[in-house]
Nucleic acid binder design. Structure first.
Lengths: 234, 234
DNA sequence: GTCTATATCTAGATAGAC
DNA sequence: GTCTATCTAGATATAGAC
C-alpha cells in the first residue's frame, strides 16, 4: 500500500546527508551528475519547508523564509517544486506515509500486548523525533484538511477499519477488555501527539522538567501505562 | 483569578441575542443608546472571527472574510478592534478563560470520582458545543503560541500545578491509582479535544456514524470509561 | 541549472465623505 | 457612528541574463 500522492516525491529521510551513495546512482548515468545536486537541494528545501510550515502554517510561511532556511535563492524553490502548494503537498504525503507505518504492528496473529506496546512506543518516537512533521500534519487537519481530505477518506479510513477489526478480534479472544476499537485509536493518537502538537503548552507548565531524555521517558511511561490500563492490560 | 488580557474585552456569550436587557444598561445612561449597537456589532464580529480564524488560521483569515461573515463593512472591524491582532487576542483570552473554568471541579474536599466525571463531561461539552473555539486555541499553541505564551507560563502553569496537587492528594488518600497527575491532565485534554481539533479526520474515518447526538454520546462514554480505567476507578 | 530584477496580486489599514 | 475609495506593504511567481 503506497500513500504517495505525487509520483517520485523526494523524501528527506531517503537522502542521507554526506554518506557516499554515488555507486547506487550510477544506474541512471545521465542523471547522476545533476541528480546529486538536485537531490541535495530538494532535501534541503523539504527540511526547511517542514520547519517553516510547521511554525507559521501554510499561509503564514513565505517562500522567502523557506529559501533563507534552506540557504538557497527564492526562485530555486519554484524551479524544483513549481509552486508553494506543490511543495506543501509533497511534505504532507510523505508525513502521512511515515505516520501510518507503525500500524503495521496490528495484525491478527500478533500478541495484543506486544503490538500495542510497540505501536505506542513508535508513535512516541515519531512525536519526539519529528515534532515539526506532527505539527504540520496537525495544522492541515485542524484547518479542515483542504488538501489532505481525499486521502483521509480513502486510504486512512480503510486502513483504520482494517486495524479496528484486528483490535476487535483481540477483544473477542479475551486479550483486551471490551472497548470501542476506533475510539481507542483516536485516544492513542491524541495522547501521543499532544507532546509534539502542544509542546509549547506542556513546556510552559512543566518548565525545565519538560526538557531532556528523562522527560521523554516519563511521558512514554505515562502514555504506555495509561493505554495498558484502558485496555485492561495493567 | 481573572484571565482577561484586554480590559473590557467583550465576550460573545455575554451578549444574549435579542433579549431585552435595556433596563440593566440604564446605569450607564450615555452609553445605553450607542452601546446597544456597539455590543451587537462586536458580538457579530467576534462570532464571525472565531469561525474564520479557526478555519483558516491567523494569517490565512482575512479581514474581508470576517467582515463578510459578520455582514458588516471591512472598516467597521478596524473601528471596533483597531487591528487584526487585537481582534484575535480578544478571542484568545476569552477562549482560554472558558477553557479553564471546568478545572474548578478539582478541589481537595471533592470526591475524586465525581470531580473527574464532571470535568471530563464538561470538557466534552465544550468540545462539541464550541469546536471552532477549541481549534482556534489549538492553532495558536500549535504554531508556538506567539501571543498566548505569557499567559501559559503564568496563569495556566500556576493553576495546573494547584490542581495537580489536588490529584496527588487523592492518590495519597487511595482514591486513585498512582499516576503522574500533570500528565494525566495532558492526556485528558488530548483525548477530549481531539474530537474538535481533529474532527475532520474522525469524520473521514467514521463516515456517517460520526454525526448526531448518538455519536457524541459514544465518544463521551469512551473517554469517560478510559479515564476511569486510567485512574483505577473502573 | 542558477539567480537578479521585476510584474502582478492581495491584504491590512486609513482618509475623508456622509 | 458608518462605509466608499484608496494607499501601501509584502507575497507569489516569472522573465530573462548568466
Amino acid at each position: 500500500m503506497s500513500l504517495t500522492i505525487l509520483p517520485g516525491a523526494a523524501r528527506t529521510s531517503s537522502v542521507p546527508d554526506k554518506t557516499e551513495h554515488a555507486a547506487l546512482n550510477l544506474h541512471e548515468a545521465d542523471e547522476a551528475g545533476k541528480g546529486r545536486i538536485r537531490l541535495d537541494n530538494e532535501s534541503a528545501i523539504l527540511l526547511a519547508a517542514e520547519q517553516t510550515f510547521a511554525r507559521h502554517g501554510f499561509k503564514g510561511a513565505t517562500m522567502a523564509m523557506i529559501a533563507e532556511a534552506a540557504q538557497l535563492p527564492k526562485p530555486n524553490l519554484h524551479y524544483y517544486f513549481g509552486n508553494k502548494q506543490r511543495l506543501y503537498m509533497t511534505l504532507l504525503s510523505g508525513i502521512l506515509r511515515d505516520w501510518l507505518v507503525p500500524l503495521d504492528y496490528f495484525h491478527p496473529q500478533a500478541c495484543a500486548r506486544d503490538a500495542i506496546e510497540r505501536y505506542v512506543r513508535q508513535k512516541m518516537c515519531f512525536t519526539f523525533s519529528r515534532p515539526e512533521a506532527s505539527r504540520l500534519f496537525a495544522s492541515e487537519i485542524l484547518h479542515g484538511a483542504p488538501l489532505a481530505l481525499p486521502l483521509l477518506q480513502t486510504t486512512l479510513r480503510e486502513l483504520v477499519n482494517d486495524k479496528a477489526a484486528v483490535i476487535d478480534s483481540w477483544i473477542a479472544q479475551g486479550q483486551l477488555k471490551p472497548l470501542d476499537s476506533r475510539h481507542l485509536l483516536f485516544s492513542i493518537w491524541a495522547m501521543t501527539q499532544t507532546y509534539a502538537d502542544f509542546e509549547v503548552q506542556i513546556g510552559a507548565i512543566l518548565g525545565d522538567e519538560a526538557e531532556g531524555p528523562r522527560a521523554q521517558q516519563r511521558a512514554v511511561d505515562h502514555v504506555l501505562s495509561s493505554v495498558f490500563r484502558m485496555c485492561g492490560l495493567a
